[in-house]
Design a protein around this nucleic acid. Structure first.
Lengths: 203, 203
DNA sequence: TGCTACCAAGCAAGCGCTTGCTTGACAAGG
DNA sequence: CCTTGTCAAGCAAGCGCTTGCTTGGTAGCA
C-alpha cells in the first residue's frame, strides 16, 4: 500500500510527488484555511484525482501535520542560524528579525509558516504536542536574545511579556504585509529593531 | 415570514433569541473557526433544531457578518471612549490599551473580537468592505494616539509601521492570554505602555 | 513478475438550507 | 366569555450536494 514515510522535522529534499502535495496543501491552507480546503482542491492543484493523495498521506490531518512541521522546522533553523552568527547583540537581534520575517513573508516558506501560526489548532492533541515542544525551543531562543540585549544595556525589559509583545509584532506582519508594498523585509526588520531598542547610538 | 431586521453596527439590546444565536455563533467561531462550525453546532448551543436559525438569519455567512460587526463596533466604541478621556497623553494611551485588551480578552466581548480578527476573510467582498471601512477609522484613532505621544516627546517613531507593530503586539495577546494566568489585563496594558514608551519619568 | 504510483468509481456521513406545518400568545368582534 | 384571525417563533423532515476516504484495478518501469 502506501509508504507513509514519516519525515523528520526538516524534511530532506526528496523530489517526489509527496513534496508537491505538501507545498500545494500549504498554499491552500494559507489562502483558505484548513477546514475550507478540500482534498479535491489539493489534488486538483497537483493534477491528481481526489483519491490519489491518500496514497501519500493517511488522512487530511496528516497533510496539515506535514505542513506545520515543515514550517516550524524552517523558521526554527533560519532564526537559529541568525542567532549564532557571532555578531554584536544588536546586529544579531536584527538578523534574527530578518530571518523570522523572511520565513513568514518570503516566497519560499510563507505558506508553511502562516499555516503554522493560524491552523495548528486543527491538529489532534498528539501532533499539537509535537509542535509545542518545538515552539518552546524557539521561544527560548528569543528570550535569550532579549536577555543579551538587556545585558548590553540596549533594552530595559527582557521579561516573558516583552518577548510576547515582540513576537506579536513579528507574527502580525502576516496580516498586513504585501510583497509589492513599499517596505522590504529588511526595512521592516530594521524599523522593528529601532522600535524595540531605539535608534542606533551615534558615536 | 422572517423579520431579518438588519441591526445597526452597535445593536441595541433586544433580548430576543437572535442575540443568543449571535452570541453562540461567536463562541463557536472563536473556538473552532467559521468553516469548522456547523449550523447544527450553533442551533444545538441555543437548543434549537438545525433549520430554526434560518428564521433569524438568511445564511450562515450572515451570522458571521453579525458577529464580526458586533466585535468591530464594540472595540471601536471602547477605544474611542478611552481616547477622548481628556487625560495626559501617556495616561490616555494606557487607557486605550486597556480598552482594546478588555474587548479582546475580557469575558463579554472576546468571542466577537477574536472572530473579527481571525475569521473576517470568510466574509464575502461586500461585508468585508463594511469591516474595512470601520477598521480604517479604528486605525486612524491609534495613529493619532501615536502622534500625540510623539508630540509629547514620549516616543521617537509614530510611523504607520510603528502602529502596525503596536497593533500586532496587542492583537497577538489573543494567542497566549489565559484569564487564569498570572497577569491581569491592566498589568499587561501597563507593561505594553512601558515597552513602547519606556518607564514613566521619575520627577 | 512485482512494485510504485496512480485512476475511476463510489460510499456513508454530513453539509447548508428549504419547506410545510404547529404552537402559544394576543387582540378584535360578537 | 368565547370565538376567530393573526403573528412570531419555532419544529420535523428531508433535498441536493459535498465531504473525507476506500476499493479494485492497471499502466509503466525494473
Amino acid at each position: 500500500m502506501s509508504m507513509q514515510k514519516a519525515p523528520g522535522p526538516v524534511a530532506v529534499e526528496e523530489p517526489n510527488r509527496r513534496t508537491e502535495i505538501v507545498r500545494a496543501a500549504g498554499r491552500l491552507f494559507h489562502a483558505k484555511g484548513y477546514s475550507a480546503t478540500t482534498i479535491r482542491d489539493i489534488a486538483g492543484a497537483v493534477a491528481m484525482r481526489s483519491g490519489s493523495p491518500f496514497y501519500h498521506f493517511k488522512t487530511k490531518h496528516d497533510m496539515l501535520r506535514a505542513v506545520v512541521l515543515e514550517g516550524m522546522g524552517a523558521i526554527n533553523a533560519a532564526v537559529a542560524l541568525a542567532a549564532n552568527s557571532g555578531k554584536s547583540p544588536r546586529a544579531t537581534f536584527e538578523a534574527m528579525l530578518r530571518a523570522h520575517l523572511g520565513q513568514l513573508l518570503g516566497a519560499e516558506g510563507r505558506d508553511f509558516a502562516a499555516t503554522l501560526l493560524h491552523e495548528s489548532r486543527h491538529l489532534d492533541h498528539e501532533a499539537q504536542a509535537e509542535v509545542v515542544a518545538l515552539k518552546d525551543d524557539f521561544e527560548a531562543m528569543w528570550q535569550k536574545a532579549l536577555r543579551d540585549l538587556k545585558r548590553a544595556g540596549l533594552i530595559a525589559d527582557d521579561s516573558h511579556l516583552a518577548r510576547l509583545f515582540l513576537l506579536g509584532a513579528l507574527n502580525w506582519t502576516v496580516q498586513w504585509y504585501r510583497p509589492d508594498g513599499s517596505k522590504s523585509i529588511a526595512q521592516i526588520a530594521r524599523q522593528l529593531a529601532n522600535f524595540v531598542i531605539g535608534k542606533p547610538r551615534r558615536p
